[in-house]
Design a protein around this nucleic acid. Structure first.
Lengths: 255, 255
DNA sequence: TTTAAAGTTCATGATGGTCGAACGGCTGGG
DNA sequence: CCCAGCCGTTCGACCATCATGAACTTTAAA
C-alpha cells in the first residue's frame, strides 16, 4: 500500500474533505444522511457544510447539498496552470477525430498519470470523463511513454513510491523488464499498453516534451484489442499519435 | 461586497480553503510564501499543507505546492453529476463547429450561471476555459434564457439574493424591465446579451429543458458585436442555437 | 391538528489547532 | 571549504475552538 500515513494532520480539515467525498458518492445528500454515513452528530456535519457552503465548495438546494462550483473552478486550475495544458485540449480532440478511439492527455503528478483531457465519441458508455483520475505509470501506455523520458533517478523514485502493482496478468511487475521496455519505448518513440491495467484494453501512448527535454505529458489512444492490435494497425496508430505530438510540440515552441 | 460573514463557521477548514485559493493565484507556492501572504506562522501553514497533501488536494514538487489532482477529480463531478451535463459537452462542441463562435454550456447553481462546458477555436487568447466560473443571470444571454424558464417565485428569490448589479451601461437594472424582457425571451425562444456584462461582447442563449419542463441549463454563443448583431445574422444564429438545443433535448429524452 | 423527522442553534467541555522556538538541511557566498 | 542565512520541518504548551448532545424550529405527513 502507499497511503502516506503522515503524522500531524488536521482533523477538522480532514472531516471537511471527507464530507466532500461523501457528497461525491451519493449525489446530493442531506445533513442527516451524511451524519449517519460518517457516524457523527448532525450538528457537526452541519457546521462543516455551513463553512463549505460559505466558500461555495458546496451549494445547498432545499435541504440537499451538492458539490459546488468553486470546487470545479479551483480544480480546473490544474488544467489551465500551464499554457501547454490548455493547448493540449484541442490536440486531444484532433487525435480522436483522426483515430475515432478514446483519446486522452495526461500529465505526471506525484508519480501517477493524471487525466487532464479526454475526447471520445457520442457513444458514452464508459466515456465518463474521468478528469483528475490517476493511473499508474508502469502499466499504462502514456505512463510508460512519460517514464521513458524521465531521468533514471526520478524513475526509481516513482517506482519506489508506488511499486509495480499487478493489475492484470499482463502487468510488468519486474523492474528489469520495465527498464528494458522503456528502452524499447525510447527507440520506437511510442509505448504500448497490452491490457496491462484493464483486461481487453489496449493503448498506444506518446510523450510530449519541451525543447529543453522536460516532459509535459502524454497523449494516448485506447481501445479494445481488435481496434489497436495487429502490426499494421498498430504502427499506423503509433504514427498518428506521434504526428499529433509533433505538431503539438511544434505549436508550443512557436507560441 | 458579498462577503457573507456567517455566524458559526469553522476556522480551520476556512484556512485550508484560503490556502487553496492562494495556491490558485500564485502558482506553485512555498510554505513561507503562503505564510507571509496570509500572515500566519509557517508551522500552521505547514500543518494544513500536510493535511491537504495527504488527501491529494495539493501535491508537492520539491518545496513547491500545487493544487492536486483530487481537487480536479472532485470538482469535475459537478460536470458529470447528471447524464444530461455529460451529453451537453458534445453539443457544445457541435455548436462551436457550426457557428465558429465561442460556445458554452452553463447551468444555474445558487442563482448564478456556472460554466460547465466551453468550446472555442485554437485562437486561445481569451478562451482560458473558465469552467466553474460564475456569472449573473440577469445580464447574460444564457442567464436570461434560464430565468425565463423558471417559476416566478424562484426568479424573485434569485433577484433578491443577487440583485441586478450594473456591469456595463447596457445592464438591465430594473426588475420590471427584466420581466418584460423575459416575456420576450419566452416568445422568441432565445435571449440576447447586448454587451450587458462585458463591453463589446454580445451573446445569444437558449435554455434546455426536460420533458417535465425543468430547466437543465443553457447553451450560448458569444462574440464581438459585429459577429452577432444585425437582424439577419442574429436570427440565423438564434436558429442554430435553438436547433442544437432541440436536438439535445431530443437525444436526452430518447436516452 | 398532531406527530414525526429533519435542520438549526446553543452552551459546554475536551480536543486538537495554533503558535513560537528550536532543529536540521540546503544553498550560495566569502 | 566553511560559514551564514533561509527555509522546511518538528515539538510542546496553551488556550481557542471544534465536536457534541440537547433544545428549539421548521417542514411534511397523517
Amino acid at each position: 500500500m502507499a497511503t502516506d500515513d503522515s503524522p500531524k494532520t488536521l482533523r477538522t480539515t480532514a472531516t471537511s474533505i471527507e464530507i466532500l467525498k461523501q457528497l461525491e458518492e451519493i449525489d446530493g445528500a442531506r445533513v442527516s444522511e451524511i451524519a449517519e454515513r460518517m457516524d457523527k452528530p448532525k450538528s457537526t456535519i452541519h457546521g462543516h457544510l455551513a463553512t463549505l457552503k460559505q466558500k461555495q465548495f458546496v451549494i445547498k438546494e432545499g435541504d440537499f447539498y451538492f458539490i459546488g462550483p468553486e470546487l470545479l473552478r479551483l480544480g480546473n486550475q490544474v488544467r489551465t496552470r500551464e499554457p501547454a495544458f490548455v493547448l493540449a485540449r484541442q490536440f486531444t480532440e484532433r487525435l480522436f477525430e483522426e483515430t475515432r478511439l478514446r483519446s486522452i492527455f495526461t500529465v505526471e503528478m506525484g508519480g501517477k498519470a493524471v487525466f487532464l483531457h479526454t475526447a471520445s465519441g457520442s457513444k458514452m458508455g464508459w466515456a465518463h470523463e474521468q478528469l483528475g483520475n490517476r493511473l499508474f505509470l508502469h502499466n499504462t501506455a502514456v505512463g510508460k511513454a512519460i517514464l521513458a523520458e524521465l531521468p533514471e533517478p526520478r524513475i526509481e523514485q516513482i517506482l519506489d513510491r508506488w511499486g509495480l502493482p499487478q493489475e492484470t496478468e499482463n502487468t510488468t511487475t519486474d523492474r528489469g523488464d520495465l527498464f528494458e521496455e522503456l528502452e524499447r519505448v525510447r527507440e520506437q518513440g511510442y509505448a504500448v499498453n497490452r491490457a496491462e491495467n484493464f483486461n481487453e484494453l489496449y493503448a498506444i501512448g506518446v510523450a510530449a516534451t519541451r525543447r529543453s527535454g522536460d516532459v509535459i505529458g502524454g497523449f494516448s489512444v485506447t481501445g479494445p484489442a481488435h481496434s489497436v492490435t495487429g502490426e499494421d494497425r498498430k504502427s499506423e496508430l503509433a504514427h498518428t499519435v506521434k504526428d499529433i505530438v509533433s505538431e503539438f510540440e511544434l505549436e508550443l515552441a512557436l507560441a
